[in-house]
Design a protein around this nucleic acid. Sequence first.
DNA 1: GAATGATTGTTCCATATGGAGCGACTTTGC
DNA 2: GCAAAGTCGCTCCATATGGAACAATCATTC
Lengths: 160, 160
Amino acid sequence: MKLIDILDAVPIPVGYRLAFLTNFYREPLLRRMEREHGLMRPEWTVLICLTYRDGVAARDISEITEQPSNSVSRGVTALEGKGLITRSPDPDDARRSLLHLTDAGRALHDAIMADYVVAEAEMTASLTAAERATLLSLLDRMCRDVPRWQSLPPYDGARR
Amino acid sequence: MKLIDILDAVPIPVGYRLAFLTNFYREPLLRRMEREHGLMRPEWTVLICLTYRDGVAARDISEITEQPSNSVSRGVTALEGKGLITRSPDPDDARRSLLHLTDAGRALHDAIMADYVVAEAEMTASLTAAERATLLSLLDRMCRDVPRWQSLPPYDGARR
DNA sequence: GAATGATTGTTCCATATGGAGCGACTTTGC
DNA sequence: GCAAAGTCGCTCCATATGGAACAATCATTC
């Protein structure tokens, strides 16, 4: 008896499977990262964010990722202490620090992300190339549609 | 600038979108549940489990959901205190207590789950019925395939 | 140019949750 | 029949993380 055995009984077939896959895909990798690289989740979030938008401030990361500013602050402090990012003062605003990846930071990001790439290949191994493309297309449409419903019931007033 | 804007740059298009959708689908609903119904996540897990398998013991729920036994234990204690479940001694094993939903517990489960149903309808509103069926079929295949890869690299030794 | 209000980043605090260990009970093996 | 090992549920402990408040800085208004 496992979680998968109630897959068919649940009234939210899509949502349940999304959560099911996300849990088994992401959670073990996060735990391995925490254990083997000593990186906490907010740090990982900052690292990803800087990989795609270097030179932003902590506040920007907080808005982009919709995570609490104190979590981002802790992540930034920790990453700086490990030499994975650097801060430079924002010439236009003394309150802000602009964040930059170091070579070590970029290397660690790539090393961790590599596991995710391998894992995704395994997760989708049972699909043909055409099916994978179809899945990606459907998921993408749903993602783009998130802003439409994230303020509607039952989400009205449900977000932090 | 939002998370969605790096959707296309990431090397794990499927995994990223799965996590993206799961976060926006589930997290706000869990927070609303915690706030409005005073139910913690382990309690919700127990409630769901008993809805589909009534009369099991805490240990069974721990194995089914792969959650720590102390979390299940806390969830059971809390739910019992709220009158949402009852314990009956297992006649065959004095260590175990068999858990049963009360009417109030079933009613609360249904009330909370109703939000998830509405939310899933919104999340998939941009798909046609045929596309929804296709998505469900592909996700289902991936779910059934989880046991194959969850012990392979990079997951070997990554799980709790 | 001073004052009031917003914004950034941080620290303090509360708490949910996972890990380790511990009694109570059961099973296994002799 | 008994000792040793295993199992069930729980409590103690450590900690990651979200909320609230606060100092420093900027913007806005008069």
